[in-house]
Simulated assay, not measured.
Amino acid sequence: MTLLTHDRYCDEIAQQVDRFRALVTSGADLSATVPTCPEWTLERLVRHMGGALRWAATLVRTRAQEMLPREQVPLGEGPRAEGDAAALDAWLAETGEMIVGALREAGPEAKVWSWTGVVPSGFWARRMTHEITVHRADAALTVGAPYDVAPDVAADALDEWLEIAQFVQRSGARPWAAELRGPGRSIHLHATDAAAELNAEWLIELGEDGLSWRRGHEKATVALRGPLTSVLLAFYNRLPLDAPGLEVVGEREVLEFWRKHATFG
C-alpha cells in the first residue's frame, strides 16, 4: 500500500470543501433528512463536517499532544444562525482555509495527538480527506446531485477504512469490531473500471484471530464487483448492494454483516 503525498491530500481537501460548498449553496433544503445518516438533517451534516475539519485544524496548528475537547474549538459548531446557507458557506470556506493552511504549514511529520496515539500530522491530512470524501457523498445523495471521486482517492479511502477497522479491533475501541471475528468468512472487492496500476481489488478475511486484508484478486466467500466509486460507497453503507452497476457474487449475507457491524458510530 502506498499513501498519497501530503500535498495531494491537502489539494484534495481544498477541492472537496469547494464541492461541498457548492451543494450547500445549490438551493437545497437544509432541513432535508440525510438518507444515509437519517438522524441528521443536511444542515447538521454540514456542521458536523465543518466542525471535524476545524477540530483537526486546531489539533495540527497547536501541535496538540492530548485530546482537545471539541467545545474548545472556536466556531466549531458553525454559525449561530440556523438555516442560513450563505453563513454556512462562508463558514465552510474559512474552515477549508484553516485545515489546509494548518496541514501545509505543519508538513506530514509534525507530531500531533490522534485517537490512535500521537502520530505524524500526515495522519490528519489523510483522515480529513476521506472524512469529507464520504460525507460529500452523503450530501450529494441528499440533494440528488451527481457524485464522483478520483480513483486513487477512492482506493486509498478503502485502504484507510480497513486499517481503521483493524485498529479498533485490536484496541477494543469500538464494540462492533469484536463482532467481525468469526470462522472463515471473506470478502472480495473488485473495481471493474480502475486502471490496472491501481490494483483496485481487496481481500478482507474475517477470521477467529481478527480482521486481515490485502490488495489482490483472490477467491472469497462473497465478492462485490462494480465501478470503484460505487464499490467504495456500498462498502461504506452509502449505496445499496443492488445499486446500478454493482454485482454481488456468493454469500450476500457476509457483505450485509459487514455493513451492519462496521461503522464509525
Rank of each mutant, 00 (worst) to 15 (best):
Y147G: 11
L103R: 11
L233D: 15
A173Y: 02
R170F: 08
A64N: 04
R80P: 03
I132M: 12
E218I: 00
K260S: 13
D156I: 01
A178N: 11
E109K: 06
R238W: 06
L68Q: 08
R185F: 00
E218G: 05
G50Y: 06
T263C: 14
Q15L: 09
G96I: 03
E109F: 07
E256G: 11
G96M: 10
V249A: 15
D156R: 02
V248K: 11
A234Q: 04
L30G: 05
S121Y: 14
Q169N: 09
P35G: 01
T133Q: 11
E197S: 14
L180Y: 13
R70Q: 12
V17Q: 11
T142V: 00
L68E: 06
L23F: 09
R70C: 00
L162K: 08
W55R: 10
F167T: 03
A220Y: 14
V153I: 15
A220V: 04
I187D: 03
R225E: 13
M128Y: 06
R238G: 05
A150W: 12
L206E: 05
A173V: 06
G122A: 03
D89N: 06
L198R: 06
V143C: 01
R127Q: 07
V119Y: 10
T229E: 06
T142A: 01
R127T: 01
K111S: 13
A110K: 08
A200F: 11
L246H: 14
A262E: 09
M67L: 05
L3K: 05
E205D: 10
P146G: 12
V46N: 04
A90P: 13
V112T: 13
H217I: 07
C10E: 00
L211V: 13
Q166S: 14
D7L: 00
E247H: 11
A200N: 09
L203H: 09
A52L: 02
T129R: 10
G122T: 00
I187Q: 00
L92S: 04
L224N: 09
A22D: 09
K219V: 05
S31H: 09
F20C: 06
M98R: 15
E256T: 10
P240S: 07
W113Q: 09
E160D: 03
W213T: 06
W115V: 13
R21M: 07
W213V: 03
L255I: 02
V231Y: 14
D152M: 00
L42D: 08
E208S: 10
G265F: 15
L198W: 04
M67N: 13
A90E: 14
M128Q: 15
W161Y: 15
H6D: 02
V134M: 15
L4K: 06
G78C: 13
Q169Y: 12
R80W: 12
G107E: 02
A173P: 03
A234P: 11
E94Q: 14
A64D: 07
